[in-house]
């Protein structure tokens, strides 16, 4: 759980400025972030983790398995989240930024006060999706020897000899956490919805 939240945290902290840069930044920023995002989205998570944990010590950078996981998965999540936010930002009409600028707001002020609050609402459902993906990917940490849910389960199996039961329980724990998180995010989404703005009635 801690791993999931820290991974998402890193992803969130990095991805918001990334998406701002990708939409409003100068060309070189767009290119740089584009390269970053393509690299981290094209490499399997487990390979990123091995590169960081087993590869980087060759360059003299060594870290605990837990931190290798947080950083590896965090950087990867930042790439996915930045794309998710970029899409959300671009879905907001350009007139919104033009209107902010016409009042005398800077680009940053317009982004913070006008674009981000609206883009956040658009991004919430896909972000809930990213949340569950990161939660499940936390099991990659198993490969680096971090004691996460799966490894905890193996320890218990080693003494209880009940693999089916224990693995089912692990699956159930993941399932329950996912459901709770998704439900709470859906509640947040409803709470933040703009009156009259989103289509609520069914189309026949």
């Amino acid at each position: 759980m801690q791993l999931t939240f820290m991974t998402l945290g890193i992803g969130l902290v990095l991805s918001i400025p990334f998406s701002f840069g990708q939409v409003y930044g100068p060309k070189w920023v767009k290119i740089l972030i584009g390269i970053y995002e393509k690299i981290f989205r094209s490499i399997p998570g487990i390979v990123i983790l091995f590169l960081i944990y087993y590869g980087l010590p060759n360059l003299g950078i060594q870290m605990a398995p837990f931190w290798a996981c947080v950083i590896g998965l965090g950087l990867r999540s930042a790439a996915y989240q930045s794309q998710l936010f970029r899409g959300a930002i671009q879905s907001i009409s350009p007139t919104q930024m033009r209107a902010s600028r016409s009042l005398g707001m800077s680009k940053m002020q317009g982004f913070k006060n006008i674009i981000l609050p609206q883009a956040f609402r658009v991004a919430l459902p896909p972000w809930a999706n990213e949340f569950t993906i990161v939660l499940k990917d936390s099991s990659f940490a198993y490969a680096l020897g971090v004691t996460e849910l799966l490894r905890e389960g193996r320890y218990i199996i080693a003494t209880s000899y009940e693999p089916l039961l224990i693995f089912l329980m692990i699956a159930a724990i993941y399932f329950i956490i996912s459901i709770i998180l998704n439900k709470s995010l859906a509640m947040l989404e409803r709470k933040l919805s703009i009156p009259g703005f989103e289509i609520r009635e069914k189309i026949k």
């Binding site: 009409s93 007139t95 919104q96 033009r98 209107a99 902010s100 016409s102 006008i114 609050p117 609206q118 609402r121 703009i194 703005f197």
Partner: peptide, 13 residues
């Protein structure tokens, strides 16, 4: 300099 837009440009949120 005030500006009034053809498509209003009101902040939706």
């Amino acid at each position: 300099i005030g500006f009034v837009f053809q498509d209003f440009g009101l902040f939706n949120h």
